[in-house]
Design a protein around this nucleic acid. Structure first.
Lengths: 154, 154
DNA sequence: ATTTATGCAAATCGTTTGCAAACCT
DNA sequence: AGGTTTGCAAACGATTTGCATAAAT
């Protein structure tokens, strides 16, 4: 419940909250998992596994995959599947404190975060969810992404 | 150029247009490729390769992959990569005549099409593209998808 | 001491590709 | 014939998993 209530919780708060969430899934907050969370807290864009390993070569690839899966299951991280070769991971919105969308580069696969004005966000959500419900589809979330070329790939 | 100019071209038109597009990429419109296009014209939702093979068991799996790749390159079909195990393919918007979005079922992976009112569409696009350009990102397209449970999986 | 996480190597599985036969034109 | 597409089987590569060791409590 405390998670995400403050738009930008103190650094320590995040770890405490992650530990709590993991507990609800019967998992503990190990050093490796903490490394991953710490990494994502300080990253301004979703990371692929190779990028994670680049920054933490001491971690075993399989453990990174496995721990990100655990963190995903606990609702701590979000897995982003683009057309790119690798999936990417970022802290769930409850932990970053702000709902956002993505600028996906179709050239290099990088992903940047952007936010939409609440008014715009509201209009889209209302419209989409209305349509969905009318067809018996139960909405759980949405993704609004822009595809294009990032500054580096123009 | 003619493609998509008519909101809903006659059935025959589509095949003629596809042939033309393939020609621009130096490819011919073979029977197998025609089967694929015909299938998508009559499908109300993006299809995965297993679904294609189910409906056309006489096709070789590798050829389906290969031909869908060719059609994608020619701008005839669009590849949709969800978190699901299989990628899905649908006719490009220039051929369906209408811009649309997706209702993605996170349970079974099925994808339905939905359209947004032009006014809503315009607001989102303007806002997103404005943000993107301000960051040196060159927009090429966008995807607005709703994630949830479809009527069958509720 | 028992349970859980880790790291290595091997397995999985959707997708891609090499190559020879079948098809055009 | 000359070039292209097809189908089979083998290769690829991101992700997952089995199993033995290392932590942790």
């Amino acid at each position: 419940m405390a998670a995400g209530t403050s738009p930008d919780s103190a650094p320590g708060e995040v770890h405490a909250e992650v530990a709590a969430r993991l507990a609800t899934v019967g998992q503990s907050y190990t050093a490796n998992r903490s490394s991953l969370v710490e990494l994502m807290v300080h990253s301004d864009q979703p990371l692929s596994i190779p990028e994670v390993l680049e920054r933490h070569p001491e971690l075993a690839q399989s453990s990174v995959y496995r721990n990100l899966a655990v963190l995903e299951e606990a609702g701590v991280v979000l897995r982003i599947v683009t057309g790119d070769e690798f999936a990417r991971f970022e802290l769930a919105e409850a932990f970053t404190g702000h709902h956002h969308h993505h600028l996906i580069c179709s050239q290099c696969g990088s992903v940047e975060d952007v936010t939409l004005p609440p008014s715009v966000e509201a209009i889209v959500v209302r419209e989409l969810e209305g349509q969905a419900r009318r067809r018996g589809f139960e909405p759980r979330g949405h993704q609004v992404d822009l595809i294009g070329h990032c500054a580096d790939c123009r």
